[in-house]
Design a protein around this nucleic acid. Structure first.
Lengths: 190, 190
DNA sequence: ACCTGAACACCGTTCAAGT
DNA sequence: ACCTGAACACCGTTCAAGT
């Protein structure tokens, strides 16, 4: 006998994203998710195959959000590649701060089973690739993009995990990094 | 009635480091640790207060190892600051590859309770601070060190978690990053 | 003073039985 | 065809009882 659905995959993913930001990844239990979407834990397995798979879906969802935001920023900017790089970096930082757990899931997944979908992860770094090409030239585009992505990913994960424990101005360090990377990578074009 | 000790904190930490690199952090169960050191799981609580605390001790132990290695490299190098930076970066990469899980515990801890001791984490980045001072000058030392540390940490965590999925030479990207950071940060001295 | 088996709470997952 | 309670395996942790 068919029954009307009481929840959906989208609702499960949305609830999971709220839960991880509020209670951490360890707080994402099947019972907690079930409570958020109005269903008992075992029913979740009609829509996901395992908790790890759910985490991967959450990471993919977050990566798609991030990709859309960065594309929007890239389209909205009018300045040269240095200005665009700065705006992309700030948009990435804003995302990392508003969704720190989801950000960590995208860039430092704890295991293969929890990793975001390949194409979503790629889409999230695509805008950076485009700016890197403008900044460093066709030849060095990939190398430059990896350098910027590495710096940004490292800076933000150190900021989020509070690894900048020595005193000093973290905002200033972010600006310093952008400015000096822009200089170095522009230079590599010539 | 006193009994001779059958294990030690050092043995528990050493066994834990082996286990995480072989079976991942999730494979670090109290029963598994107990089996490695010849004791039942409940006995471990005579020496550690919780699993999270054990993970923190493991992270601290790894950070101390890393600090010692980097100090050794710094003392052994004879070239200028650019050469020293390159050697430190390669030593860090070697450590990350030989102990990927421990490396991740140091730089991207999953929670506060599992974080390495403050002074050990600081010691692990100290050699980098010294080279940054030589490279970028007293004034920019902290900013330069954070830029380099961010890049290195991000590059290695992306390499370890296989986030460089698009094709290309990862070794070349590492050299490119070192070279261009060295250029940019030397320039900031003048 | 350390070690153990038994027990408890919690969590992911399966499954037979309901509608 | 989805939902549920009951059940199972696994894991961190506590504790009374051993030596």
């Amino acid at each position: 006998m068919p029954t009307p659905d009481r929840t959906s995959l989208a609702a499960i993913i949305a609830a999971s994203r709220e839960i991880i930001e509020e209670h951490g990844l360890a707080g994402l239990t099947m019972a907690e998710v079930g409570e958020h979407v109005g269903v008992r834990a075992p029913s979740l397995y009609k829509r996901i195959s395992s908790r790890d798979a759910l985490v991967a879906l959450v990471a993919t969802d977050a990566a798609n959000d991030l990709a859309a935001r960065l594309r929007g920023v890239l389209n909205a900017t009018t300045g040269g590649p240095v200005a665009q790089l700065s705006q992309l970096a700030h948009a990435l930082r804003a995302f990392a701060r508003s969704s720190p757990i989801a950000y960590a899931l995208i860039f430092t997944p704890a295991s293969d089973a929890m990793r975001a979908d390949r194409s979503a992860a790629k889409a999230a770094t695509e805008p950076l690739m485009l700016v890197s090409r403008d900044l460093a030239g066709e030849q060095n585009a990939l190398l430059a993009a990896r350098t910027i992505a590495s710096w940004a990913s490292g800076f933000l994960s150190m900021e989020l995990t509070d690894n900048f424990r020595f005193d000093g101005d973290v905002d200033a360090a972010f600006e310093f990094g952008i400015a000096h990377l822009a200089i170095a990578l522009s230079a590599s074009a010539g």
